[in-house]
Amino acid sequence: MPSGKLPKLLIIDDDAHLRESLAEVLELDGFECHQAGAAEAGIETAKKIDPDVVIMDIQLPDSSGFQICQELRKRSKATILIMMTGRFLSAEEKKQGFELGADEYMTKPFDLAELSVRIKQLLSRNKI
């Protein structure tokens, strides 16, 4: 990833407000944010822009977040995949998600400062 260029971030969630508010907050922190309202659209966008970070809801109207996670991981090992959830996840589910390539879990509502720091951390690790 060439320096000076903003890291590309893809948000996949069916809730438009959540998508937008999250995108705008993260844009303030210096991310280039893209959005998708469904799994299929999300995968398409990811193919097009090749994001550095994908933040996706586990539950989507047309598919499970885990399936997108698996698909995207196949395409790129470097992409940081962050799963969002509104409910408790069992240890089993979490374990399954990690095996499919998820890097991080976040329970809604999330501390945005923390999220921003965590993403930058993961990105800087990838650079090394």
Binding site: D15, H17, L18, S21, L22, E24, V25, L28, Q59, G86, R87, T107, K108, P109, F110, L112, A113
Partner: peptide, 25 residues
């Protein structure tokens, strides 16, 4: 409770995001 919780968490997350945006601005 799970359904309700999940459904409330989304708007809560939006509010949270928005207020964070406002605070930052």
């Amino acid at each position: 409770a799970s359904v309700v919780g999940h459904e409330i968490r989304n708007p809560l997350a939006v509010i949270n995001n928005s207020i964070y945006f406002i605070k930052t601005k």
